[in-house]
Each structure stands twice: as C-alpha cells, then as structure tokens.
Amino acid sequence: MEILPFLAGVILLALGFWDVFETIVVPRPTPSRLRLTRHIVPRTWRLWRAIGERRQGVARDLFLGLYAPAAAVLLLATWILTLVLGYALVLYAIRDQLEPVPQDFGSVLYFAGTSLLTVGYGDMVPAGPLARFVSLAAAATGLGIVALVITFLFSLFGSYQRREILVVQLQARAKAPPSAVTLLENYARLDLVAELPELFADWERWSAEVLDSHVAYPLLGYFRSSHDNLSWISSLGAMLDAAALVLTTLRGVPRGHAELMKRVGAHFVEDISNYLGFRGLDTSVVDEAQFQEAYRRLAAAGYELQAEDVAWRAFEHGRATYAARLEFLAQTWATPAPLWIGERTVIASPAHEARRVHEDARVQEAARVQEAARVQEDARVQEDARPS
C-alpha cells in the first residue's frame, strides 16, 4: 500500500461527504471553510454575474436566471467527481489488489467511476479484501449521493414555487416592480383597507417559511422569479415599507399584524444578510423629499395621516432596520433594488413585449377608425346644413 495517495484519497472523500452532509442534510447554515460549496457557489456566481452584466434588459435577466439551476447541476457534478477522484486515489494505493493490475492512474480512475456509478463492465475487478470493500463502498455511496441530490432538487424547487406564490399575487396589488405606496393606494381605491391585516399576516407566514428554507438551502437565494419585473427581494421590501407606513404614518388602520410582519421580515433580512457578509450601516436609504411625495399620495388616496414631521422621523427610524440590508441583498443577487417611490425601470420578455406592441397597434387602429368616423360625420352635418 502506498500511504500518500491513500491519505489523499481519504481526505478527498471526507471533504466530499462532509460537503454533501452539510449542504443537503443539515437544515441550517454552517460556517465551515472546509466546504466545497462555500467556495464554488460565490466564485462561480461572481463570474456568471460579470458576464451577465454585459447584457441589457431581458437578455441580462434571462442569463442571470440560468445560474441557480446550473449551479445545482454543478454541485452534483462536483460531488461525484470529488468522490470518484477520492476512491481512485485509495484504489491506486492498493492497485495490486485489482485484476488485471492497472498500469496507470487513468485506469484506476475509470474503475472508480464505474464502481461509484454502479456500471460495472467487468473488465477490471477487485481481488483483495480491501479493494473489494472500497468498491462496495463506492457503489453504495454513489447510489446514496444520487438519492440525496434528487431529494435536494425536489426541496429546492418546492421551496422556490411556494416562495413565488405571494410574490406573483402582489403584482395585482402593487404592480411590478412592487411599491408600498402603490399597494396602499390600490387598497384604498378598491375599498380593501380593512383587509390589510390579513395581507400582513400572510406575509408574516411567508417571511418565516422563506427564512427557514433559505437558511437551510442558501442556493435558493440565487433562483430568480420567472415573471417579468418581479423579485422576492423587492416584494418583501414593498411589504416591509407598507408595514412601516401603517405603523408610523397612517391613522385608523389596524397595526397589530403590520408590527408582527415587520418584526419577522426584518429578522429574515438580518439573518440572510449576515450570512452573506453584510458589513454596512443600518440606514433608511430614503430622503425626506421622497417621503413628502408619498405623504401627499397617501393623503390623496383618502387615508387619515399623522403629522408629517412626526411621521417622517418615525418612518426613517423604522425603515433603518431593514432597508440597507435589502439593498445589499439586491446587489449581491443582482436583482432590482426594492422600490420605495419614483420612476420604474420596466423590462419585458419577448412574448410580453410582442403582446404590448400588438395592443398598442390595436389601440392606434381603433383611434384612426374613430377619427375617420368623426370626420365623415362632420362632413355629413355640414352637407345637411347647406341651403338647398
């Protein structure tokens, strides 16, 4: 037995199994620097994002949206290659127990791969007891890794779909990208202000569930919404802003569920941003002029408001608990920053853009027909008014 390749193989196997265990089995973030995933995902994301930033509009969003599924496949490939290489090094150290005895490392690597993937062509077989044990261990762990990864993928996509339900629903209430002021205006216009507590309760549960899933599987944060101009980060920001406005600016609106939602949502943002390495200061990221515009819009919507100067100070203080951290998350994952108030930068998929162009053409055609009918009617009236 050759000691150095044997020890190197054992170390690689330990790293591979430890990374699979912490990534899939352990339902909480782990700060260990020995994890392969902890180094692979951030580095590949920075490279992927740098390439994506060279694109514009829909092309950029579509490209960035491919990263998370590709990263899941990359992790599976990394784990399998790590284990194949680890088993190959162990088998190379005891290659005299294989028949026929391999003449190079490539042959041993091939045998380790067929053992892990349970292919077993039979052109090379283990003859010694240790080689037989290693081959059986490779076959057993190969099946186990595939089963765990399948479970991992189902958990990822199940959590992703549950996360997106309320995000998509919010589009009808606050437009896309969502805005807290637009949300409150629409609820006042539709006479749904009494249902705001129910909305906040739904987003309180959403925050708790998404916090739990994204802490267990940090890769979920890289999954982007499949709908144009939507992001779970901007949606959460809109709901936190709406809760902050209810607590600091609006009068006559129930505050209990808004307070609970803001607590859970801010805790969610704090935990995720700390995991990703937030080192900034907690600030409100909003100026008084923007608040004054929001104040006027809410007053025009029919809300009873607190005194403006008192509301501004309270809102600025309340928003500081989450705003800078949300901006950090948006920058990290290259999603649109949470909208507070102001102009919207809207992107549209090719299908949606084509539908918009078609709708604009239809409206223009209807306007031309109406104008032609009006001209004909004016001409007829003038003809009738002429003396015979």
Rank of each mutant, 00 (worst) to 15 (best):
L85S: 07
V119E: 12
L116S: 00
Q169E: 13
G52T: 07
P177W: 01
V84I: 10
L64E: 06
P102L: 08
L98H: 02
L170I: 11
I165Q: 12
A59V: 12
L81T: 12
Q103R: 11
A147I: 03
A71Y: 05
D96P: 02
G120N: 10
A59E: 15
A50S: 14
V119T: 13
Y87G: 01
T78G: 04
A88F: 02
E99N: 10
S115F: 02
L64W: 07
Q103C: 03
L170H: 08
Y67A: 06
D123Q: 09
G86I: 00
Y92L: 07
L109F: 13
R55L: 15
A131R: 00
G158Q: 01
A137C: 02
D123K: 09
F154C: 04
A140G: 05
I51W: 03
V84M: 04
F157R: 10
V146F: 11
R163A: 08
R173T: 13
V101C: 04
A93Q: 10
V125D: 05
G122E: 07
A139S: 04
A112T: 04
F157N: 09
Q171C: 11
G158M: 01
V101W: 00
V90P: 02
G128P: 10
A139D: 00
L75H: 02
F152P: 11
F154A: 10
Q161L: 11
L143V: 00
R163N: 13
G122D: 07
I94H: 02
L153C: 12
T82I: 00
V134L: 08
E53Q: 14
R55S: 14
A50M: 11
V108C: 06
P69H: 08
V167Y: 08
A174K: 06
L98Y: 02
L117M: 12
L156G: 07
F152Q: 11
P69A: 03
A127S: 15
Q161N: 09
T78E: 10
M124E: 05
A72M: 06
L130V: 15
Q97G: 15
V90C: 15
G128L: 10
T151S: 10
D104L: 11
D61G: 09
V134N: 03
R163I: 10
A71G: 00
A140W: 04
R55C: 08
K175R: 14
A88Q: 05
L76V: 09
Q171D: 15
L75R: 08
D61P: 03
P102C: 06
